[in-house]
Design a protein around this nucleic acid. Structure first.
Lengths: 137, 137
DNA sequence: GCTTGACCCTGTAGCAGCTACAGGGTGCAT
DNA sequence: ATGCACCCTGTAGCTGCTACAGGGTCAAGC
């Protein structure tokens, strides 16, 4: 299949596929006489794997390791679990950070009573960190 | 004060301060005879405002608008509230996205029973989107 | 008076993960 | 023959910094 078909089949942008090839995540396929990339089903499943992993938020580097494991069936599966668990911890950390952020934003935006920006409590709060309940970084 | 002192006072990196000046977020201060940047208290409070807003996750563009409002006390405060509310919605969307991600990751990593990567359910799941409970983008 | 070290300067390149051109070639239908 | 959709390469841009390289300045200590 040509790159556009692969793109449609995997819900990926054409440019993204070429990008994955450039960084060595997806192996270079054969070429047609007109120098068009021609992909086979193995490319398709590999790209699906990559896209799925990206949707789950894995980094490109993580995906490299995961693909490597998938290519070596004799290796220990624990490695895959390590990557997943580490990633899960990071996602959880992000959630808790954003939750604190959200609480602070609710507090800040609740202060707006309309009127002139000279009296704006939102702007006031941003100017003076002392108005905050919690520390946030 | 010199840039290093301002950096310490506002818990900002020196390079970040120069970056803010370069992108026009922080106005260029005067210079000493040796061409050193010399800041006054107004720069300090402006930078505090910026840093505080960044900690709350506002984009540089949002901060530009917020600073603009702070500079024009006769303008309507509603604009500041709009920016804050919009940002709050985005944070909430991010939280719910990450929460769905987390649930899926818990499900995926729970499948690992150790053993060879050829039997790895983690890798299996990544390869086949059909294993997922929910759709995730 | 000379060196050492901490600070300051400019300018540029890098990070992640794409995305968006510009400027060109190919293939098929009308 | 011409139009259009697709393909190619190469490079620059996005966000918000961060990290150099390669140089100047200044005060303290010997």
């Amino acid at each position: 299949m040509k790159i556009g078909e692969l793109a449609k089949a995997t819900d990926t942008q054409v440019e993204t596929i070429r990008y994955y090839e450039r960084i060595g995540l997806l192996s270079a396929p054969g070429r047609s006489a007109a120098n068009y990339r021609i992909y086979d089903p193995s490319h398709r499943s590999r790209l699906s794997f990559i896209r799925h992993s990206r949707q789950l938020g894995f980094t490109i580097d993580d995906i490299r390791s995961l693909l490597d494991l998938a290519d070596h069936p004799e290796r220990d599966c624990a490695e895959a679990d390590n990557i997943t668990t580490r990633h899960l911890r990071q996602v959880e950390a992000k959630i808790s950070h954003l939750t604190r952020l959200r609480d602070e934003l609710v507090r800040v935006s609740g202060r707006c009573r309309g009127g002139l920006s000279s009296d704006c409590q939102v702007i006031e709060t941003l100017a003076d960190h002392g108005h905050c309940t919690a520390k946030h970084e």
